[in-house]
């Protein structure tokens, strides 16, 4: 038997090049945000930002107008109650409750991360799952209470 180092080497190169082809195939070929999959903490992060912007506008003016209707007079209070009977508006309100609760839960997670709690990858992924789950669960509870 002849020692066939050349073959082994060729075999190794073949394997490596196949791995490269496979990797190239798996890697995103473009940074199209609609085609690459983000890790869960990144999704929670961008949702935190989007919910924050929506809470700023139209969230804050809506909230102040609601407080104004609530406290101005018995007539404005009755008008607000009447408006809130509309199912479309109730649904919109539930969505804003969700934006608020997501922003709140994700914010608490960031406070923990700032204090160096849960910065390991596994913990960070798990906590971002909890943020999504708890905020949706609390939103469903609020929705049930509203209906």
């Amino acid at each position: 038997m002849e020692f066939r180092a050349g073959d082994q080497l060729r075999n190794y190169h073949f394997k490596v090049s196949r791995m490269e082809v496979k990797l190239k195939h798996q890697r995103p070929r473009h940074l199209d945000l609609f085609k690459i999959t983000q890790p869960l903490p990144a999704i929670v992060s961008i949702m935190h930002r989007i919910s924050g912007v929506l809470l700023f506008f139209p969230g804050i003016p809506f909230l102040l107008y609601g407080l104004h209707m609530l406290l101005e007079s018995p007539e404005s209070f009755a008008a607000m109650q009447a408006v809130l009977q509309h199912p479309g508006l109730k649904l919109l309100l539930v969505f804003f409750v969700w934006f608020f609760l997501h922003h709140l839960c994700a914010g608490i997670r960031y406070l923990a991360l700032d204090l160096h709690y849960g910065v390991e990858l596994a913990q960070a992924r798990a906590s971002s799952k909890w943020v999504l789950a708890i905020s949706v669960l609390l939103t469903l509870l609020a929705g049930v209470a509203l209906w």
């Binding site: 930002r49 924050g52 809470l55 700023f56 804050i60």
Partner: peptide, 16 residues
């Protein structure tokens, strides 16, 4: 609460 909210919103919106 609202004063805190507006300050908080200013920092966030400015970053965005």
């Amino acid at each position: 609460f609202f004063a805190a909210l507006f300050w908080h919103a200013w920092v966030g919106v400015r970053n965005v």
